[in-house]
């Protein structure tokens, strides 16, 4: 009993002593200390958190670090930790963390904050909101790119039916579905066709199809197969990794093509690449890079960043393997649509 305990004490104290003796690595001078408070789901979620972290790492003007959240109870202490560490720019990833970011921003007016997918405003119980001078909201007009995707899907569908569904009815999700449905409608109007959208109707949001979360791939697969049986041959699942099982399955069955969301699936997926028609890209990373640069240049303002086709905050990814199947005229039409959205001639919402 005594001996092992003694041994353990020696080992423990040795590690402690060596630990104290070595000073932690010092921080490179002149760079912005950029700290990401992530949403739940881990840093390698192939979607949201991962995109944000990659963007932060790619920023040349900052030293980035992150803290993952195991549950929403971690949001507040994670942000507090960054405040105590002397972070100059704290980015909350996801609108779920927005309220905590705003709370911290009001208590620490000298620190700059940003929040992804939310306006980052201070709202009271009656939902009267006002701007906070040191919080920048990073939002995305994803419906612009989704509109192009809808047009593409309508033009590519052989059955005259396309489908979309979401993880949960959050505005950040339904905006994809709105754009998609309107893109299809635009195609129908121009070509005098009647391509149908299953799973979402912008005029009747309560009838939309949703998985209920952003992780149940099995349920997403069931929903996708249901749409295939109803005749849909192009499907847009809106919810990060949700569509992965379906894409892998569909690669074998060849029943439908997939349009992905957030970051170009061709670069992240392992199975299902060959049926990825395109991706509605949302450049979370680029938005974080841009706000980091603002802080470095001392040009930070609380005015919202809105990712659009124009500033390349959102885009439609290349067709990759399926490029040969997309008719040249359709490609040109989609390019023209993008130009007129950028020029403000075509309204998507």
């Amino acid at each position: 009993m005594k001996k092992p305990l003694k041994l353990m004490a020696v080992v423990a104290s040795l590690t402690l002593i060596t630990g104290v003796a070595v000073a932690p690595a010092s921080q490179a001078a002149g760079k912005v200390k950029l700290c990401l408070a992530l949403d739940t789901g881990g840093v390698d979620d192939r979607s949201f958190n991962e995109g944000a972290w990659k963007g932060a790492q790619a920023s040349l003007v900052s030293n980035a670090e992150y803290l993952p959240a195991t549950s929403s109870a971690d949001f507040a202490p994670n942000i507090k930790k960054f405040v105590d560490k002397g972070c100059e720019l704290i980015v909350g990833v996801g609108f779920a963390i927005s309220a905590e970011i705003v709370k911290s921003a009001k208590a620490n007016p000298k620190i700059k904050y940003a929040v992804v997918d939310d306006a980052g405003q201070d709202c009271d119980a009656n939902w009267n909101c006002k701007d906070v001078p040191n919080v920048k909201g990073l939002t995305f007009q994803t419906d612009e790119a989704a509109f192009m995707a809808g047009y593409l899907a309508a033009g590519m569908s052989k059955t005259g039916k396309v489908a979309t569904y979401g993880g949960a009815p959050y505005p950040t999700v339904t905006i994809f579905m709105d754009g998609f449905a309107r893109g299809v409608a635009h195609y129908n109007k121009l070509k005098g066709k009647s391509v149908q959208v299953l799973g979402w109707d912008p005029a009747n949001p309560k009838s939309g199809t949703f998985v209920g979360n952003f992780s149940d791939q099995a349920k997403a697969l069931t929903i996708s197969k249901g749409f295939e049986q109803q005749g849909a041959d192009i499907i847009l699942p809106v919810g990060g990794i949700l569509g992965a099982s379906y894409a892998a399955e569909s690669e074998k069955s060849k029943k439908s093509l997939t349009i992905w969301v957030d970051s170009d699936a061709y670069n992240t997926l392992t199975a299902g690449k060959s049926i990825i028609l395109s991706t509605v890209v949302k450049e979370i990373g680029a938005s974080i890079k841009s706000v980091a640069k603002d802080v470095a240049d001392k040009k930070f303002t609380a005015s919202k960043y809105v990712g659009t086709l124009k500033n390349k905050g959102v885009s439609l990814a290349p067709y990759h393997d399926l490029s040969g199947q997309v008719p040249g005229t359709l490609k040109n039409e989609i390019r023209a649509i993008r130009d007129s959205i950028i020029a403000g001639k075509l309204k998507v919402n």
Partner: peptide, 13 residues
């Protein structure tokens, strides 16, 4: 050994 001890030690610190 020195480096390993320092890494683990810093983590526990």
């Amino acid at each position: 050994i020195k480096s390993a001890g320092a890494t683990a030690g810093n983590a526990y610190l």
